[in-house]
Simulated assay, not measured.
Amino acid sequence: MTHISPDPEPERSTGLEPGGGVPPGETPPAESSMPETLPRETHNPTKGWAKAPLTVIIVVAVLIAAFFLAYALVLIL
């Protein structure tokens, strides 16, 4: 696995002080993106919606739709 060092290269960066610091007024070198910065998360995989909350939401939506349908039928008749 290749890894890109986040440390600046003194021979390619202008204005670096000994130790890698940047003097006041100088723009620091850009950060390099590092591959695989975080470990792979396997302990908490997403599984989507649980069955109980999804069932409750569907039942409530059907009851609300049935109420409005019944209300519309009462207004028409």
Rank of each mutant, 00 (worst) to 15 (best):
G20V: 10
H43E: 12
P18N: 09
S13C: 13
V59F: 03
P39V: 10
V59C: 11
T46N: 05
E9C: 05
A65D: 01
V74D: 12
K51E: 08
R40Y: 00
V74C: 07
L54I: 01
A30I: 11
P24C: 00
S32V: 14
L69M: 07
P53W: 05
W49L: 11
A72F: 02
G48Q: 13
I57C: 09
G25H: 01
P24W: 02
I57A: 15
E41W: 04
P23K: 06
T37W: 03
L69I: 04
T55W: 00
V59H: 02
L54F: 03
P35T: 02
F67R: 01
I4Y: 10
H3P: 03
G21V: 02
K51H: 12
P6I: 06
V60L: 15
K47T: 14
G25Y: 03
G21E: 03
S5Y: 06
G25Q: 00
A72K: 07
V22D: 03
I76Q: 13
Y71F: 05
P29G: 10
G21P: 03
A50G: 09
W49T: 08
P29M: 13
E26M: 11
E31Y: 01
G48V: 04
A66D: 01
N44Y: 05
E26C: 10
G19C: 14
P28I: 05
K47A: 10
T46F: 07
S5T: 12
D7Y: 15
N44K: 07
F68R: 00
E17H: 07
M1T: 07
V60G: 15
V74E: 07
E26T: 12
P8Y: 10
P8M: 11
L75C: 09
E11I: 05
L38I: 00
A72V: 04
T14C: 04
T37H: 04
F67G: 02
P28D: 14
E41K: 02
T14I: 06
E11Y: 01
V62W: 04
A70Q: 01
L16A: 11
P28R: 13
V22M: 04
G19E: 08
S33G: 10
M34D: 05
V59I: 14
A30F: 12
E9S: 09
F67W: 00
G19N: 14
G48A: 12
P53D: 13
T55S: 06
L75I: 10
P10R: 04
T2V: 15
V60Q: 08
T37F: 06
V56K: 06
K51S: 07
P39R: 15
E11N: 07
E41H: 03
H3W: 11
S5I: 00
F68C: 05
T55F: 09
I4V: 15
T46Q: 08
F68M: 03
A72I: 02
L77S: 12
W49Y: 06
E17S: 13
G48Y: 04
P45C: 08
A66S: 11
G15R: 03
L63K: 02
W49P: 09
A70I: 02
T42N: 09
L54C: 05
